[in-house]
Design a protein around this nucleic acid. Structure first.
Lengths: 315, 315
DNA sequence: GCTACTTTCGTAAGCCCTTACATAAAACCT
DNA sequence: AGGTTTTATGTAAGGGCTTACGAAAGTAGC
């Protein structure tokens, strides 16, 4: 496997780390033997914690060393079978399994000191030969992943990349079917289609565009995957409505792109405020509206049964 | 597990690496899912190699990615079951299992490209946040362990440390028993005690010291663990003999320390050459003599049956 | 004082690698 | 050609961790 990992790029990080760890664990086993200690590397974290302080419970040890309680339970059983530990119920709480070093365990802890010192020194010496600090790097990565998991990092990157590939264009008659289908999809999934829906979706030209409104379509890979309308009401107010994004295309920022475009258009047309109606059941949607700057208002009459929240954005 | 690893020192390197690798693998699985790819992280190395070049055999792939052939065999079976691969016997050699990407596999390889690019970018970006280079450090450690395994590093350190604790002292009557026992131990293990042995071991004072010879004793932890004699023969020649080291105390450089001391003493006493007799069966001993500077000679009469090699060092 | 939730821990099973062993085909060696 | 060694691969089992699940003890709300 000469330069395999240099070709894979960073993708194989997990696999590579595992190989390194397996290898080091194998060596550790041989080292225990060299020192005449009948001791398995996997026991080390548990044993070490107990040699610092006796009498802890399974769960305490597990959280201390970052293993599952099951793993600790198995290791403790192993160590006890080998005579290094004794398990006792101590306090009032009889669920708890308090673990103590036995005489043999205590003696072994002392004998292992010497070995630990040598291994530590050997590793420090090896580390001095390297120009990159493995120890520091591991600590940094643990912290890094703690702060923001890899998954989220990739997710954000993907979203940014894909959102850059989304195009928001003006409505054309060819998008009539998509406009209807995308809206019907979510409306009938969560609610049921109402009269006002049929009116707008079946006759967008007559009900939305001719009164002075606009419709925008989000394209991804040539396909219409999101739509949103800007409605002009007879009283001169403007409404953001009929926003719909295909579930297939979620996570590409499409809602945000459509929302921004509608707001921009409303400003262009001289609107001073933009309102919308939604339902608190649709949490991601309501969240998006907040992010776009909308704030909750009350008291506007609504033609929709499903509306239980109204929001407004001042322009 | 707040600062656990900072307390253990480097001893827990293996365990810590494993945790990190498990974690990253878990994240990788989630990332495959995010991209809608029904794909397991463990498949990656095999799949990657095959997407570079089809039709390789199990063993080829294994050596390329550094897994056992068994692991590759299992992964290939999994991938084939999921329809990504096809196994075929191709050439004349019917033992070989040539593995090819299926149509689905080829399509998946293309789809995965995008994901790999994002993951790579995310990792590069994360890496840019760190001050220590994990990637570089891993590569360095792989190379470091390749060159000299951890075990050997520790072994050398242990030897150096323990050898520093070994004291070589002049013979005293209290060491008579040790002198006899240590020699009898190896002689009767590999050969059988001869008349000349009994003479020297039972009466060291009369047979070795009074004629002008010396005996040195290596002490470790207060115990006599090695002995070696410098004999003065009636013809004025000097011999290194009766070297014995306790098996319990091997790997502490004791033979070398005793040999050096005998040579030093011989020089002090004005000897111009030092010879010894041994048996080629005792490879570590003969090796040691070479390291001390002795070279093979022939033709000297010997009182010992077991002698089949004679060596000499000019002073 | 009863019921429902929470905590602690263990067993069973699974995952991903390994080693040990088995089998068949090929290669090598008189 | 016949026997031995090497090579290619697979199966079974094990090692070290995990998750899923369950039992028992403790805690809390009425």
């Amino acid at each position: 496997m000469p330069d395999f990992y240099s070709r894979t790029g960073k993708m194989a990080l997990g696999s590579r780390l595992r190989r390194l760890s397996d290898r080091i664990t194998d060596e550790a086993a041989a080292i225990y033997q060299l020192y005449g200690n009948d001791f398995q590397p996997r026991w080390f974290p548990v044993f070490y914690v107990l040699s610092e302080q006796d009498g802890r419970t399974i769960t305490e040890i597990a959280s201390e060393i970052g293993h599952s309680h099951v793993s600790v339970s198995q290791i403790v059983k192993d160590l006890a079978r080998n005579g290094y530990l004794e398990e006792r119920a101590v306090s009032g709480d009889r669920r708890k399994n308090h673990v103590f070093l036995s005489e043999l365990g205590r003696a072994t802890a002392v004998r292992l000191q010497e070995q630990f010192r040598d291994v530590n020194d050997a590793l420090e010496a090896a580390m001095a030969e390297t120009s990159y600090n493995l120890w520091g790097a591991i600590a940094e990565w643990e912290h890094l992943l703690e702060r923001k998991p890899l998954l989220r990092r990739v997710q954000e990157l993907k979203k940014a990349r894909e959102s850059a590939e989304v195009q928001v264009v003006d409505y054309q008659p060819e998008y009539a079917a998509a406009f209807r289908a995308l809206n019907e999809e979510w409306i009938s999934k969560y609610f049921r289609m109402e009269a006002a829906d049929y009116a707008a979706l079946d006759h967008p030209d007559e009900k939305i565009l001719q009164p002075g409104g606009h419709i925008f379509v989000a394209l991804y890979g040539g396909e219409a995957v999101g739509v949103c309308a800007l409605l002009k009401h007879t009283d001169g107010t403007w409404e953001l409505a009929k926003m719909a994004v295909s579930p297939k295309a979620q996570g590409k920022n499409i809602g945000w792109l459509l929302g921004r475009r509608v707001i921009e258009k409303a400003r262009e047309l001289g609107a001073t405020a933009l309102f919308l109606e939604s339902n608190t059941m649709l949490k991601p949607a309501v969240n998006l509206y907040y992010k776009l700057g909308f704030r909750k208002i009350t008291g506007r009459p609504s033609p929709y049964e499903r509306s239980n929240i109204q929001m407004e954005l001042e322009l």
